[in-house]
Simulated scan of single mutants.
Amino acid sequence: MSGSRGGGGGNAEVIVVGGGVIGLTTAVVLAESGHRVGVWTRDPVARTTSAVAGALFWPYRIEPARLVGGWLEHSLSRYEPLARRPEETGVRLVAGLMADTPLDGPGSWSSRIPGLREARPDELPASVGQALRATVPLIDMPVHLRYLKERLRAAGGTVQRRTVTGFAEPAAEAPVVIDCTGLGARELAADASVYPVRGQVVVVENPGIDEWFVSSLPGPAGTTYVMPHPYGVLLGGTTTEHSWDLGPDPAEARDIIARCARIHPALAGARVLEHRVGLRPARPGVRLEAVQLPGGGRLVHNYGHGGAGVTVAWGCARDAARLATA
C-alpha cells in the first residue's frame, strides 16, 4: 500500500467496517500512518455499543490471555497521554478499587500501573473484604468517540453511514477491508461463536463520588460497579449471556442501584438520569487475523473483544494495522 494521504470518497486504500471504538481506533492508526482510510458504520458513532460502555481500563471477559497482556500495555501507553486533555479526549486517570482480585491476579500488564497495591482495611467499603487500589484511565465514551472521529478526519480519513450485507461490497472499493463489526460478525463473517452479553446500567446524579469501584463475581448480576463520569455516575451492571434484549428492565435497574448503594449509601437517593443497555460482543477469543477474499483482496478480522474493547483498542488496532499493511 502506498503512503499517500486523503481517504475521502471512493479512493480509500482501506475500508474499516464498524464505527465503534475498535473500528475508529484502527482507522486512526492506519490514517496517521499515511494510508487513505474510510470507515463504514451502520449506526451513528454516538449510538454504537461503545457509546454506552462504562469504559474503565481493566480487562473483562476477553481472551486469549497470551495476547491480552501486550494489547493492554500498548493501549495504556496511548491512553495515559490522552488523559492530559480530558475535556477533548474524554480520558481521565481516576483512582478506585477493584474488589475480589488478588494482587497477582491481573497479570504482567499490571506492572505498568503506577501505585497498584492492596487496599488498606480503612479504604474498603463496609461490605467489601479485599480490593486492589489503582489509578487507571476512565473514559467518557461519547466524548472519546467524537475525539477519535475528529482525529481520523484530521488525518484525512472519512466516516460514512453505510450498511453492508457482505464484505464483497467494501472489497469492491478498496483492496483491504477491516472487519470491526462486533456482534455483526456473527452474520457478516458467518461466525456462530460470536454472542451477545447484555449489560444494563443506570446513570444517576453524582452525590459526591470521585473514585470508581468494581466487584465482579460469577452470575448474571455478579458485576457491581460505580464509575464517576462528567455526565453523572454510571452504575452497573448485568452480564446476561445470549440475550439480545436492548430494553431496560426496571427490576434490574432497582437491583443495580441497591447493590451500588451498599458501596456508596448516598446513591440510594440519587436522581436517575438515564437507563442504558448494551450488548457486549463476546467470543471464546478475539479474532484478529488476515484472510484472502475471493477477488484477491485482503480481509482483516478484528472483533470479539467482549467487555474489554475500550481497554485493548489501541493494542488490537496496532496489530490489525500490521496485518492490513503486511
Score class of each variant (00 low, 15 high):
T49I: 01
Y79I: 05
T48F: 08
G70P: 09
A83H: 10
T48N: 03
R66F: 14
I62E: 09
P44F: 10
L76H: 08
E63V: 00
W40S: 11
G54A: 14
P81R: 06
A31L: 11
L76Y: 15
V91P: 04
T89G: 06
E32L: 08
G34K: 05
R85I: 00
L56M: 14
L72C: 12
E73W: 00
W71E: 14
W71L: 11
R42W: 00
Y60V: 11
V29M: 00
I62D: 05
G69M: 02
L72A: 02
V52M: 09
Y60S: 04
A53L: 04
W40N: 10
T25H: 05
V37N: 05
I62H: 05
P64K: 10
R36E: 10
R61C: 06
A55I: 07
Y60A: 04
S75T: 14
R92S: 15
A53S: 13
G54D: 07
A53E: 02
W71D: 13
G38A: 15
S77T: 12
R42F: 02
R36D: 07
A46W: 10
L82N: 03
R61N: 13
R78Y: 00
A46R: 14
R47Q: 14
T25Q: 07
G54N: 10
A83Y: 14
T41Y: 01
S50M: 12
F57I: 02
R84G: 13
G54R: 08
D43W: 04
V37H: 12
T49N: 14
W40H: 03
A51C: 02
G70Q: 09
R78L: 13
P44D: 13
T48L: 06
V28E: 03
A31C: 04
L82Y: 11
A51F: 05
G38T: 15
T49G: 08
T26H: 08
V28Y: 09
P44W: 03
V45R: 07
I62S: 03
L93P: 09
E63D: 14
E32G: 04
H35K: 09
P44N: 06
G34Y: 05
W58P: 00
L67K: 14
L76G: 13
V91Y: 13
A27V: 04
A65R: 15
S77Y: 01
S77W: 01
V45N: 07
R42G: 15
T25F: 03
A51Y: 07
L56Q: 08
S33I: 00
P64A: 06
R66Q: 13
G54T: 08
A27I: 03
E80A: 11
G69P: 03
W40T: 06
T41E: 06
T48H: 09
R36G: 07
Y79D: 00
L56N: 04
V45H: 10
R85C: 02
L56S: 01
A53K: 13
Y79H: 02
T89K: 10
A83V: 12
V45D: 02
G90V: 04
R84F: 00
H74D: 05
A55E: 01
G34S: 03
D43P: 03
S50Y: 03
G38E: 13
V28S: 08
V52I: 10
G69N: 12
R84L: 06
L82C: 01
G70Y: 07
L82S: 01
L93K: 05
P86N: 06
W40E: 04
G38C: 13
D43E: 15
R92D: 10
P86I: 04
G38S: 15
L82A: 09
